[in-house]
Amino acid sequence: MGQDTEPFELDVYMRAFVPDAAQRRQEAMLERMRRLRDRGIIDDVSVSRWSSRACLSVELHHDRPDGTELYRELVDATDGTALSIQPFFRERKGPSRGRSVVHLPVVCVVVRRDDAIAGVYPCSAPEGTYSVTDCLDALEDGGDVENVDGDVALDPQPA
C-alpha cells in the first residue's frame, strides 16, 4: 500500500468451532493482523465468528453472523472479475425442501476501503489461489492486497 492511498480495514470471519490446531492458526493470524494495525499499516481489524455452513434460503435475525449476507456480498463483489470465491465457499443444495447451503471457510479476510470490498482472501484466479497468509505476507511486505478490481498483484499459490 502506498502512503497516498486511503486507509482500509480488515473484516475477519473465523469458524467458531474448529480443532485445536486450526484454532491456534486462527489466533496466530489474528495476532499478525493486530501487529499490522498497531504499526499503522491497516486502520482496524474486526472479527466475527461463524458456523461451518449457512442456509441461503433462510433469513436469520440475530447478532451472530451466519455467513449468508457476506457470501452474497462477496459473490456480487467478485462478479465480472478474474476472482472467484470458489472452492472456499461451496454452495450446495440442502437435504430438505431444496434449500441451498453454503459451506464457509475456516478463515476469510475481506479488505474494505470506505466500506466497499477491495480484497477477498481466500480466493482463486486463473493463475492460482490467494490465501489469507498471502494477504498478510503482502501487507507485511508493503504489497498491494486489493484484488477485487480484477488486477491481482500477489504471487498466487499453485492451484
Rank of each mutant, 00 (worst) to 15 (best):
M14I: 11
R15C: 11
R15T: 11
A16K: 14
F17Y: 12
V18R: 04
P19T: 08
P19C: 11
D20L: 14
A21Y: 13
A22W: 01
Q23C: 05
Q23F: 05
R25E: 15
E27M: 07
E27P: 00
M29F: 08
M29Y: 05
L30F: 05
R32F: 03
R35W: 09
L36G: 10
G40W: 09
I41K: 08
I42P: 06
D43V: 01
D43Q: 15
D44R: 13
S46T: 15
S46C: 04
R49S: 12
R49L: 15
W50R: 05
S52L: 04
R53K: 11
R53G: 06
C55A: 03
C55G: 00
C55N: 15
S57A: 09
S57Q: 08
E59D: 10
H61K: 10
H62Q: 13
D63A: 14
R64V: 15
P65M: 12
P65I: 13
G67R: 02
E69P: 00
L70Q: 08
L70N: 02
Y71C: 12
Y71L: 08
R72Q: 13
E73K: 11
E73R: 13
L74Q: 04
D76C: 09
A77M: 11
A77N: 02
G80A: 05
T81N: 03
S84W: 04
S84G: 14
I85C: 02
I85R: 00
I85T: 08
Q86A: 13
P87N: 08
P87K: 02
E91G: 00
R92Q: 12
K93E: 14
S96Y: 10
S96F: 07
R97D: 12
S100G: 00
S100R: 14
V102I: 13
H103L: 12
H103A: 01
P105K: 04
P105A: 02
P105G: 05
V106P: 00
V106F: 02
C108E: 04
V109K: 00
V110S: 01
V111R: 02
R113N: 01
